[in-house]
């Protein structure tokens, strides 16, 4: 076991710009990111109420070339999504997207063809009340957080129920509106136990192993964690949503670092300012990391006024090269860091 007293996690770049319309490059309240074939980056746009009919997945590469997008509109019809939360590729390169309103998982091909759906409303086996986080393990099984049923469920990648664990509560193995989920290289399962302010780690069978974030020193405690990811060395990254930051722990759950966000202008943002030089001019003489008055010093308020900081970090993803992708739904962008090499 290695304890990383100082874990360097350098910032790499930002991808994104707010998209105020109904299609095209840019993001609209992104809620999840996953990496597909050829390192293509898939971003799930949950979309606000005004633009929800354009709920979609945008596809780009690391160089910020916007490649294509797909979506079938807002609703409960075939291929449609209402409140999309998370997505993941399965072992056959199909994308599974959770929908916490429709209580189902939609399945699409890599190019956006709608294939099928699985799950239905309820609290029995194979049923959901608010499916949120989704991931897949080395056996090709799908692991889904069933938030309002306060449990984790396992399915085959064609939606056949395999097993479940968890119940409402705050003890080991219990949950309070859990959100995100991930697995590590040993198929251990990490669940962002949102309203219990912790991440719980389980083995592949759902046996409780440890909790992270609830008994650490005060300044490193989690507040409403939304997502979790693990790099190839076992370091654990937690989207500390309520504190607008990412907390990093070693494989033993010992706190090692905090990321607050350091976004720079994306390629698309630079192009915007090239077309709007007067706005760029006033921006350049502004202080965009100001000291704030006391009454606005909550993490939420700080982030709402400090553009480079994380604001609404809802989802994390680690790619095959240990790059960490932090999705900020309120800032319509993804900040990318280099995780442990």
């Amino acid at each position: 076991m290695t304890i990383h007293k100082e874990l360097s996690i350098p910032y790499l770049k930002t991808i994104g710009i707010v998209n105020n319309g109904f299609n095209g490059r840019g993001f609209q309240n992104p809620h999840s990111v996953t990496i597909g074939p050829d390192q293509k980056i898939f971003v799930l746009n949950r979309c606000d109420v005004a633009r929800r009919k354009a709920i979609r997945i945008g596809v780009m590469n690391y160089d910020e070339d916007y490649l294509y997008e797909f979506g079938y509109g807002f609703g409960s019809g075939e291929g449609q999504l209402a409140l999309a939360v998370d997505m993941v590729f399965d072992s056959t390169q199909r994308i599974h997207v959770t929908d916490e309103f429709n209580n189902r998982v939609n399945v699409y091909s890599e190019t956006g063809e709608y294939l099928t759906k699985w799950g239905e409303s309820g609290s029995g086996e194979g049923q959901f009340d608010g499916p949120s986080g989704i991931t897949t393990n080395s056996k090709g099984e799908m692991v889904v957080v069933d938030q309002r049923n306060n449990r984790v469920q396992k399915y085959s990648n064609d939606g056949q129920f395999i097993g479940q664990w968890g119940q409402s509560g705050s003890r080991e193995g219990q949950f309070n509106l859990p959100w995100g989920v991930c697995v590590d290289g040993f198929d251990n399962i990490y669940v962002a136990d949102w309203r219990n302010d912790r991440v719980q780690k389980f083995d592949d069978s759902g046996n409780y192993l440890m909790s992270i974030g609830s008994s650490t020193p005060h300044d490193s405690k989690l507040l409403r964690p939304s997502s979790v990811a693990v790099d190839s060395l076992g370091n654990i990254y937690v989207a500390d949503w309520g504190n607008e930051r990412v907390q990093v722990y070693d494989d033993n759950g010992v706190f090692v670092n905090t990321l607050r966000g350091e976004a720079t202008l994306s390629k698309w943002a630079k192009e915007y300012f090239e077309a709007n030089p007067e706005e760029k001019e006033t921006r350049e003489i502004s202080d965009l990391t100001p000291d704030l008055p006391e009454h606005l010093n909550s993490p939420y308020h700080i982030s709402s006024q400090t553009e480079s900081y994380f604001w609404g970090p809802v989802s994390l993803c680690i790619d095959a090269y240990d790059k960490l992708y932090v999705v900020e739904t309120n800032r319509h962008r993804v900040q990318i860091f280099q995780g442990a090499k």
């Binding site: 707010v18 976004a263 698309w268 915007y272 706005e279 921006r283 003489i285 606005l296 308020h301």
Partner: peptide
Amino acid sequence: EYMAMRAGKDSIWPYGRIA
């Protein structure tokens, strides 16, 4: 100056409103 310009243009770019 920057905030008044953004308000006047209803600019949300690049990353949404700045409070």
